[in-house]
Amino acid sequence: MAAEQAKVDPMHQFTIEPLFGTGHWEIAGYNIAFTNSALWMAIATLALLIFVWGGLKRELVPGRWQMAVEGFTGFIDNLLAANVGPAGKKYVPYIFSLFMFILFANMLGLLPLALFGVHPFTPTSHFTVTGFLAILSFTIVLAVGFWRHGFHFFSLFVPHGTPWWLMWLIPFIELVSFLVRPFSLALRLFVAMMAGHVLLEVLSSFVIGSANSGPLWGGIVGIPSFILMIAICALELLVAGIQAYVFALLTSLYLNDAENLH
């Protein structure tokens, strides 16, 4: 398709294509068509389900698979214990779900399935998805904060040791930084995912374009671009893990504010 047009559109990979249910799947007038984005979220969910189910053998001496699953749960458990403390134990299911769902969606979107004619889609490259997860996290933080501390939760906006003559400014800055959190959470993941995929697409368009225009340009431009693509692929795998980690880490830090104030 891209080759036929002799021009690669790096943004085309993010197009949402309804698979079925376009016309009549609606709730209260809102369209809920099952799209390729929904399909890849379903695949990520299924893969995650199989992965965790494989670690549910509950053996005293774990096998490799069980070790891998226990490694992830232990990782999230340590993350919450380090950032929130003993009160963080009850957030393990949420943070684990968040981390693993984002990780699996990121990783599956990087699979080189285009070689087999299938186009992988990364749901986390859409801010509608990341925004939903960010708002969900932010809502939980607000709910926990007000449920545990009531209106005392507003003391979050007055850090310890604020001089009285700055009381008109500091709470306002703290409030803005607090309200920016869901946006930073959503945009960071969305931008990191999109940028990586665009970069790979642009480099691949260099490879295809230069190879089409002859062996000389293919050698000068195509081969270095291809080598760079391989390196960027490794980097993207790292970014996929880091962004999932950052999302989980920041959510646990915000939960720490809500649990313990500061």
């Binding site: 949402i16 809920i32 984005s37 929904a38 979220m41 949420y94 693993m100 939903f132």
Partner: peptide, 21 residues
Amino acid sequence: TYSSQVFWTLIFFGFVFFVIG
């Protein structure tokens, strides 16, 4: 697409949270 995206994220992430998490 926003309504479809939010709806299916809610469904699948909800499944992940309640069943797996």
